[in-house]
Amino acid sequence: MNNSTEKAEQAVTIDISGYDVATAEIRSEAKRLLTEKIVDAVVGYQAGRRKGSAVPVIITDPAQAEKLLFSPACVNNLSIYLTKAKKEIRAKGKLAVVAKGCDLRALAGLVGESQFKREEVVIIGVSCAGVHRAGIQPGEPLTNSTIAKKCRECSVHIPDEADLVVGKLPPLPDLPPKEKELMEKLDAMTPALRWEFWKEQFTRCIRCLACRQVCPFCYCEQCLCDRGRPQAVDTSPRPSGNMGWHIVRAMHLAGRCAGCAECERVCPMDIPLNLLNRKMAEELKELYHYEAGMKPVEKGPLTSYDEKDDQSFIK
């Protein structure tokens, strides 16, 4: 295993024949849900202008169901459109949403945080073999070099907890993890070197806040980091404020992040933000045996406690 990661990976194409099945089933299900007025709108993916691209879409007319699709370009986590922050979308009425396994984890988290009730939303789960990583020209085949990092370590290819699972999962190649390796490298560094690493990364941040805006859990009406009085974090896109912003963000997502890695995908400056979320998830698992799951839980690890929690770090 260790040797194989040293060598350049051989090209592996991932079988996505199941996506055509998924597309057909999403269309017929969306049509049915809208025609029978079970839902008022369906949040899904449709083709964009660029060849092979897919973009989020909210449809309300059964005739539009034919536009829906599933492909390796369906990278977005659509659960963001279901939070209370999206007033205009919730105003459309009862919603159905197309969700990959990783997205379903976010949906479960949002139910746990009372953003919506599970029975209010119809979840169309997709058997997913993987989607593109950031920066891939749409239309490229799905291979081990174009697949997203998160998909290499995916444990939820089939979102069982959805109301309906569409598509067909082909046998999947065993892809060695990339993020895990990177994580191990960082963990092995001295704190001073890690600081250098993060400093370089955060210094690059332009504070476009794409990471916050695509995060299903960043639904706060008033972000702490937008506040002026008191100002928690400097708003200028400079190293000092950037460092503060990313630390605060990681902390606020600890125990809530569902690991969809959208923050990292959308970062126009390629900052590996999911490493922070992953670190927090790893620590929460070790400390409190908590893992973001497919079923809603009422209380997360940081909104609950155990009297016997470890306190070896406290004098």
Binding site: L186, D187, P191, A192, L193, R194, W195, E196, F197, W198, M243, I247, A250, M251, A254, G255, L276, K279, M280, E283, L284, L287, Y288, P301, L302, T303, Y305, D306, E307, D309, D310, Q311, F313, I314
Partner: peptide, 20 residues
Amino acid sequence: FHARRRFAVFRKLLEFIGVD
């Protein structure tokens, strides 16, 4: 009790960022 959990995690975050 809540603070204990929060700080246990925050310490780990700071450590990961590279704070002594």
